[in-house]
């Protein structure tokens, strides 16, 4: 009996070695999911997208947010006076800001199905800088500036015209 067992030892050992080597080269049982493009449902409440050119600066979203994580950043132009900026670290992804936004047909602030939000390393400084910025802010500001200039020009022209007319009237 003992001899038989002793004879079996190398056999068992080889079996084990083979099993371990096999496991080493086998495909992994767990999946790394975030670069696989896993699709969430269409209105999954993930990362925000803020479109500056749609925003009218009403700050309804900031008032609707239950955790006060929306900051209105002044733009320096009249319309929009300020655009929202979301502190992603504090956001609870409730989507109430999207509900409150009055722009139609497309909302200026929207939650997308983008769920991969990785901050590394997760220190306080890094988390504090994890902010969803408004998109196309510069263009929007430039556009707004141009619009303002145009309006100014038109106003000036209208004023000039009026003055000219007034002068004419006086001359007559």
């Amino acid at each position: 009996m003992e001899i038989k067992e002793a004879l079996m030892v190398p056999f068992e050992a080889t079996k084990k070695v083979i099993r371990v080597t096999k496991a080493l080269f086998a495909p992994k049982a767990t999946e790394v999911w975030w670069d696989k493009g896993v699709k969430r449902e269409l209105h999954y409440r993930g990362k925000h997208i803020i479109k500056a050119e749609l925003c009218i600066g009403c700050s309804m979203c900031a008032r609707a947010c239950p955790v006060n994580c929306i900051e209105m950043v002044p733009t320096g132009v009249k319309k929009p006076r300020a655009v929202p900026k979301v502190r992603g670290n504090e956001c609870i992804f409730c989507g109430l800001c999207e509900d409150a936004c009055p722009t139609k047909p497309e909302k200026a602030i929207k939650l997308t199905d983008n769920y991969s939000m990785i901050v590394e390393p997760g220190t306080w400084d890094n988390l504090y800088q994890f902010v969803f910025e408004p998109e196309g802010l510069e263009e929007a500001i430039e556009k707004a500036k141009k619009m303002e200039e145009m309006i100014e020009k038109k106003k000036r022209e209208a004023l000039k015209k009026k003055q000219l007319e007034d002068k004419k009237g006086e001359e007559k």
């Binding site: 409440r45 609870i92 989507g95």
Partner: peptide
């Protein structure tokens, strides 16, 4: 998730109906 966009904290029922 299909209904509200989240699996657990759905915040889907509000005064006035459902969201």
């Amino acid at each position: 998730e299909t209904f509200s966009g989240q699996r657990i904290a759905t915040s889907s029922i509000v005064p006035g109906g459902v969201r």
